[in-house]
Amino acid sequence: MAKTRCLDPVVLNLWHPLGALVELPVDTVVDTVLLEERLSLAVGLGREVAVWRSCPDFVAGDKIDVASVSKSLPAKVAFGYLWASLGSPPDELFPIPEYEETDRRRLNAATFGVNVSAPRAIENFLDMGHFPYVHTDILGVEPHTEVKEYDVDISVERDEILATRCRFFQPLASSASETGAEVEYIFRVPHPYCSVLYKSSPVNDARYDVIAVFMQPLSQESVRAHMMLCILDEDNEDKVIKRFQQTIFGQDKPILENQFPKRLPLDPRAETPIRADKSAIAYRRWLSQKDVRYGVIPASY
């Protein structure tokens, strides 16, 4: 195996997202970076994919027959994205059953570059306390700042973090309500660099909108954040839905880029958690237990 800069076997053996399929030109070489490694990739008309360490034979923009790539790294398509691995990944990626429901809108809201570690970005995704301050008038508004008690579990059979009974007061909970209301969330962290949230759907009481972030680690301190939407909405144009999600993410971005240190400290005494951070505490512990080292500052004892 070629020499890699990332020496963390846990992270090397994971599946990592590289891009949204709909945004990739067919039969064309595209360059990207994963774990400080230059990679090239291509997608065929029938969604067959290939990913390889960049080499001078094929440069970005070249036309290529995907089937002709002999030395492809492990690669697959899931949730509308191309995933690859620099090590030996498990057969399956974590499931998102809702993705198969045919009445849902499924799209990539955007892929943004952010100068922060993947775990910091995941932790932000799990956090409700910042809604009134960072997403003012959209996901929260002062003085409704309380993070009510919720439950966090590490699901044994799935090896993922699950936060349930999460509730937060939202001024624009739905287009129908004027007064604001409590919105319910469920958060999953099924992968060290990916998270999926379920949010009560404004159009159907019994179902949830699903929003996921998949972090592509470019380096320990920079990522491409892919945002997947899988939601119940029959009225709005794609671009309106994307605009909403991009607005939200654009608000988090300067926070993430002003966090210090950029890698997530796993030492429980590096920062000060409060009860509202239960899911973040569980996440940090889970990363420690898995012995994830890339993008974090491991606890030293």
Binding site: A110, T111, K239, Q246
Partner: peptide, 10 residues
Amino acid sequence: VPVDFYPGRE
């Protein structure tokens, strides 16, 4: 009038 500048290049 929203324009999908990114990623749509509208």
